[in-house]
């Protein structure tokens, strides 16, 4: 059974005329690391809001179809219940850090769940260890750098021990170095906790070394879904105007010139391999 399943899902926000997402069918298995991309307004955020129940419980509107997360139908569960399965991290960490220090921020979710104190402390220590936040526990959010803030935001979702982590443009407000650190952190979490991760990003380049699946959306529909090597070399990707990494653009050109080049490299290492093979 897939961990997340969308069955013919469409959604229209309360006062909108057109659908934000339309006829979505999607299956996601445990442990996948997925890049969700597409131009602004294509429905990416709406899609992930459906997974943790913010749609239809927080954002009102007309929802059709069914979304099953870990065996539960999201329409029949509360967002609070789903939050122990699905963690979510938004674009602007400033709006997610609501407490006056990091310790309380990490405790916030489990406190709301009524989890016993000893267990909360244990979780905070585990997560703080993993995300290297121990030295920041008594800092206020304003004293943290953007990258640290985003790490705290991720940590505060993880203290609820979710199996799925959704991130909506987590690196949009970060400098390149902190952005890379966040993505590497996600990779570690994906591998060490077998955490299923769906990340919305415009900077595709950042994720090429890590993700095993890319979902491409346009006008509320999924127009391509598969391995990075399939999706990013497709006509759909070209047409939709996403920021295709230079390496891939380069190899696309190269393939036109040299029919012997048959693979679709997405990382530098794969690119080097492919070139080696051709030159042999």
């Amino acid at each position: 059974m897939p961990l997340i399943e969308f069955k013919n899902v469409s959604f229209k926000y309360g006062d909108a005329e057109s659908y934000a997402i339309k006829d979505i069918n999607l299956k996601i298995d445990e442990g996948e690391f997925i890049l969700l991309t597409g131009s602004t307004g294509c429905g990416k955020t709406t899609l992930i809001r459906c997974i943790n129940g913010l749609i239809p419980h927080f954002h009102q509107g007309a929802l059709e179809g069914e979304i099953i997360v870990n065996g539960y139908s999201t329409t029949e569960c509360t967002v609070a219940f789903l939050s122990t399965i699905v963690g979510i991290v938004f674009q602007n960490p400033e709006n997610q850090l609501v407490s006056l220090n990091v310790l309380r921020e990490l405790a916030f979710g489990p406190e709301n769940m009524g989890i016993p104190r000893e267990e909360i402390n244990k979780r905070i220590m585990e997560v703080a260890e993993k995300l290297e936040l121990k030295h920041l526990l008594d800092k206020t959010p304003i004293e943290l750098s953007g990258g640290e803030q985003q790490r705290v935001a991720i940590a505060s979702a993880l203290t609820l021990k979710p199996r799925i982590l959704l991130l909506d443009e987590p690196t949009a407000n970060l400098d390149p170095k902190s952005a890379k650190m966040i993505i590497e952190l996600l990779d570690t979490l994906n591998k060490s906790l077998n955490l299923t991760i769906i990340v919305i990003e415009h900077r595709l380049e950042l994720l090429m070394d890590y993700v095993n699946r890319v979902i491409l959306m346009e006008n509320g529909r999924i127009i391509a879904d598969g391995k990075p090597s399939e999706v990013l070399y497709s006509h759909e990707a070209e047409r939709s105007g996403v920021n295709i990494p230079r390496l891939i653009r380069f190899f696309k050109k190269l393939k036109e010139l040299n029919p012997k080049l048959i693979s679709n490299p997405v990382t530098i290492r794969e690119g080097v391999e492919a070139l080696k093979k051709v030159s042999e």
Binding site: F81, T84, Q96, F108, M113, R117, L160
Partner: peptide
């Protein structure tokens, strides 16, 4: 900003259960 803060609170079970723990 308030709306996105509310989203984040909601996603972490704010006010969902009466027996909240205080750390």
């Amino acid at each position: 900003r308030a709306i996105s803060i509310a989203e984040s609170l909601e996603s972490r079970g704010f006010g969902a259960y009466p027996n909240r723990t205080y750390l």
